[in-house]
Write a protein that binds this DNA or RNA. Structure first.
Lengths: 356, 356
DNA sequence: TGAGACTGCTAAATCGATTGACCAAATCTT
DNA sequence: AAGATTTGGTCAATCGATTTAGCAGTCTCA
C-alpha cells in the first residue's frame, strides 16, 4: 500500500498541490478562501495524508530531528534519564531524537558525527555519562550543546551538575545533624573526575565556614566503582583512635556508601545511630535498597537532558553564553543521617562550636 | 559554510554529477574508466564531500534509519543495554537509530509511530522494558520487530527472554548444590508478568524431574519492586517449622533477593551457608553489590536488542517465523549458593534422592 | 566499408514536498 | 469605463541526490 502523497490530496480536493501545502501548513498570508481550506483539510483527513518528512526536509532544509551522540549508554543507570529528558523535550517541540552511542571510540565518534550531519539534523547534543571536560570533536555543527560535559574551549552551551552546591548540601546536612568529625570518602583515580575536585572543594568550604579544620586522616579514597573499595576506605576511618574517628561520612557515590554500610555492620555499628552517611548520585537500586535507605544527592540527569534539548532547539537561551549552566543537585533525605552518638568525645583539636 | 554538494565534486573533477554518483556508489556495470574513477574519488576527498542523506533518501526511498519506539526507557537499568544492542547492530549495518519513548501513553505512541513512518524509517522496533504480550498498535509498518514483547497476533518477528530455560537453570543450580527444599519467591501483581508464570513453570518442572513435590508453603510472593517485600516474604518462609523450612530460595528478581538477604541477616543466618539464594535479572548494582554477591540469571537485553535490529534490517532471518525467538538467559554464578546446612533434616515427606 | 558491438560518459527525469512569481477574475476608484 | 487593487489560486523552480535511456566515438569483422 503506497503512501498517500500531497498530489493525492490535491486531486481529491480538486486543487493544486500548492494550495494543499499552503493550507496544511497554515501559511498566514496565503490567500485561500475559507471554503477551499475546509475542502482541503477534509480531503487530507479522508485520504489519511501525512507529509513525507524526507521530501519536506530536502526542500526546507530542516528535518525536525536532533542528533545525540554519547559515549557509554549501556553501562550506566543515568543514561536512561538523560535520554528521557532530551527526548521528552524534543518531542514537545515536534522533533525526533537520533541516538548514537560511541562507546568512547574516537573513530566511531567521528563517523557518528558525520552521519548525523549528513542526515541534516537540526541540532546536536554531545553527551557524556560522567561530568568531564572534553576536547571539542571535529565536525560538530554550530548548533551543538554539551551535556554533562564541558568543551575545553567554551565555545558552545553546556550543562553540568552543580557539584559544588550538591557537595555543600551534603556536608551541611551532616553539620546540621550535629556532626563535627565528617570524613570525605573520595574517588581514587589516576585522572580524577571533575566531580571529585568540586565536591571536595564544597566539603572544605562548608567545614571552614563552620570553623572546623578537617583532620587529614578523614580524607580517604576508594576506586569508586565497587562497594568493596568503599568498605576498605571506611575501615581505615573506623580504625582511627576514638577521638579522631569520624561520626559521619560524605561519600563520593552511593556504591562506596554501600561499602561504608558493610564496614559498619561488620563492626556492629548501627547506621545512622553510630555512623551517619551521605552518598551522591541517588542510584535508586543502591541508595533506595540499602538498610537503612541512604540519604544522598541526586544527579539531575533528566533535567540536564531536557535543558540540552531545549537549548539545542533554541527554545531556551543559556543564561551565560560562555559558562556551563549548573543544574542543581537536590538532596534526597532518607534514613542514614542522625545526630552523632552522645558518647562521641569532642575532637582533641576541635574548635568550639561557634555556628551562629 | 555551505555543505559540499555532488555538483561541487563534479565541477572539481570535470565530469557530470551522474558520473560522480556512479563512481562513489561503486555501481558495478557502470562503464567509467579507471582513470576517471580515480579523478572523481580524488576530487571528492579534496573537497570533503559526503552525500546528503536526506536527498538520497528521497530518491532511493531508503533512509538508512531504523525507528525504535519503547514504553519506558528512563526508569529501568535494562533499557540502556537493549538500546546499545540495537544501536550497535544498526551502526554495523550503516543505519541510524531514531528513538522514541512513549511512557506507555497510547496517544504519544500513535504519534510516535506516525512520525517515524513519515520519516521513512527503513524498519521499526517496538520494544517494552518488561516481557509481555501486547496488542499490535495501528500503523506499524510491515518491517517491524517486537523486542521483549510478543504481539497478540503473532504476525511479526519477536524476541523475548527464554524465561523457562532461565528458571530451569536457576533451580537446577540449587538442586545440584544438594538442596531439596527450594522455595519460589514469586511476584505478586494483579496482572502478573508473563515471566512469573514461565519461571514458576520451570520451577515445578525441574522439581518434578528430581522427584520433589514442593510444599505449597514454599510459594510466597512479594510486590517485586522493593527489597522490603522480599524480606517479608522470606520471613514467612523462615517462620516455617524446621523440617519444612526451605534451605534455598529462587527469587523472581534480584531486588527481592536483596530482601531475602536482609531477612536472613536479621535472624543471624549466613548466606549461603544457612540459606542459598538465586535471583533473576542480574541487576549489577544489586546482585553484584550484595554481600555475598548474588548468583542470578541474566536477562539478555543487549543480545535481544541486537537480534531485533538485525532482523529488522533483514540481516538475519527469524528461525521460526510465527514464534517469538527465545533468547537464552545465562546463569551468573557468584557466591550465594552452597550446599545446604549439614544439620538440615530431610523433609518429612521427602522422596529419596534418585537423581541419576 | 559499413553494420553492429562496445566504451565512456552525460542529459534529463525522478523522488515529494515548499514557495516565489505570476495570472485571471472580481472588485474598487475616479 | 479604464485603470488600479484585491482575491484566490496555480505554475514551475527548487532542494540534492540516483538512475535510465541514449549519444558520440572507437573497434571488430564479414
Amino acid at each position: 500500500m503506497a503512501r498517500v502523497r500531497i498530489s493525492d490530496v490535491a486531486a481529491a480536493a480538486g486543487v493544486s498541490t500548492s494550495t494543499v501545502s499552503l493550507v496544511l501548513n497554515d501559511r498566514t498570508g496565503a490567500r485561500i478562501s475559507e471554503e477551499t481550506r475546509a475542502r482541503v483539510r477534509e480531503a487530507a483527513a479522508v485520504v489519511g495524508y501525512t507529509p513525507n518528512s524526507i521530501a519536506r526536509g530536502l526542500r526546507t532544509q530542516r528535518t525536525r530531528t536532533i542528533g545525540l551522540v554519547s559515549d557509554v549508554i549501556a553501562t550506566t543507570p543515568f543514561a536512561g534519564r538523560m535520554l528521557a529528558g532530551a527526548q521528552d523535550a524534543a518531542r514537545e517541540h515536534g522533533h525526533l531524537l537520533i541516538l548514537v552511542n560511541t562507546d568512547a571510540d574516537p573513530a566511531v565518534e567521528r563517523d557518528a558525527i558525520r552521519a548525523l550531519v549528513d542526515h541534516q539534523v537540526d541540532a546536536m547534543i554531545f553527551a557524556t555519562m560522567w561530568h568531564r571536560v572534553v576536547e571539542t570533536p571535529e565536525g560538530l555543527p554550530d548548533r551543538t550543546v554539551f551535556l554533562d560535559c564541558r568543551p575545553a574551549d567554551g565555545t558552545r552551551p553546556a550543562v553540568v551538575p552543580d557539584e559544588v552546591a550538591g557537595g555543600r548540601a551534603a556536608v551541611r546536612e551532616l553539620l546540621a545533624a550535629g556532626h563535627r568529625r565528617i570524613a570525605w570518602l573520595d574517588i581514587d583515580e589516576p585522572d580524577p573526575p571533575v566531580a571529585s575536585g568540586l565536591r571536595h572543594q564544597a566539603y572544605r568550604e562548608v567545614l571552614a565556614e563552620a570553623g572546623i579544620t578537617p583532620d587529614p586522616a578523614w580524607h580517604v579514597r576508594g576506586d569508586g566503582t565497587t562497594a568493596a573499595s568503599g568498605r576498605a576506605a571506611t575501615d581505615r576511618l573506623l580504625d582511627l583512635p576514638p577521638h579522631r574517628r569520624p561520626t559521619a561520612i560524605f561519600c563520593f557515590n552511593d556504591r562506596m556508601a554501600a561499602g561504608a554500610y558493610v564496614a559498619a555492620r561488620h563492626r556492629g555499628l548501627e547506621i545512622p545511630a553510630d555512623l551517619s552517611v551521605v552518598g551522591y548520585d541517588d542510584q535508586q537500586l543502591v541508595a533506595g535498597e540499602l538498610d537503612p535507605p541512604l540519604t544522598t544527592i541526586a544527579l539531575p540527569h533528566y533535567e540536564m537532558g531536557r535543558w540540552a534539548a531545549e537549548v539545542a532547539l533554541g527554545a531556551r537561551e543559556p543564561p551565560e553564553p560562555d559558562q556551563p549552566y549548573l543544574m542543581p543537585c537536590p538532596i534526597i533525605r532518607r534514613d542514614s543521617v542522625s545526630s552523632p552518638p552522645a558518647a562521641a568525645p569532642t575532637p582533641a583539636g576541635g574548635e568550639p562550636d561557634t555556628t551562629p
